[in-house]
Simulated assay, not measured.
Amino acid sequence: MSRSARPRRHRIRTLLTPAFDNLPSRAYLVLVAAAIGVFLHAAYVTRDTSFAGMWPVLVTAPLGILALPLPALVWDTPLEWFGPVLLTAAATAAGLANAVMLGRLAGTLRRQA
Rank of each mutant, 00 (worst) to 15 (best):
R3L: 13
R6W: 13
P7A: 02
R8H: 10
R8D: 10
R8W: 08
R8T: 10
I12S: 08
I12K: 03
L15R: 13
L15M: 10
T17E: 15
D21H: 09
N22A: 07
P24G: 08
P24K: 06
P24W: 05
R26T: 06
A27V: 14
L29N: 00
L29Q: 02
V30E: 07
L31V: 08
L31P: 03
A33E: 01
A34V: 12
A34H: 09
A34K: 09
I36Y: 07
G37L: 01
F39M: 03
H41M: 09
A42Y: 03
A43D: 01
Y44M: 01
Y44H: 02
V45D: 08
R47L: 11
R47P: 08
D48T: 03
T49W: 01
S50C: 09
F51W: 10
F51Q: 14
M54P: 04
W55R: 06
W55N: 08
W55H: 10
W55S: 05
P56I: 05
V57K: 00
L58S: 06
V59Q: 02
V59R: 00
A61T: 05
P62Q: 00
P62K: 03
L63W: 04
L63P: 01
L63T: 04
G64R: 04
L66E: 01
A67W: 01
L68P: 08
P69C: 04
L70K: 01
A72L: 13
L73F: 03
V74I: 04
W75T: 11
W75M: 14
W75D: 13
W75V: 11
D76N: 15
D76E: 13
T77G: 03
L79C: 10
E80A: 14
W81H: 15
G83M: 06
G83S: 10
V85C: 09
L86D: 08
L87Q: 04
L87T: 00
A93K: 10
A93V: 12
A93C: 12
G95A: 12
G95W: 03
L96N: 05
A97S: 15
A97Y: 12
N98K: 09
M101C: 13
M101P: 00
R104H: 08
R104F: 07
L105A: 14
A106S: 14
G107W: 14
L109Y: 12
L109G: 14
R111V: 07
R111M: 12
R111T: 09
R111S: 11
Q112G: 14
Q112W: 15
Q112I: 14
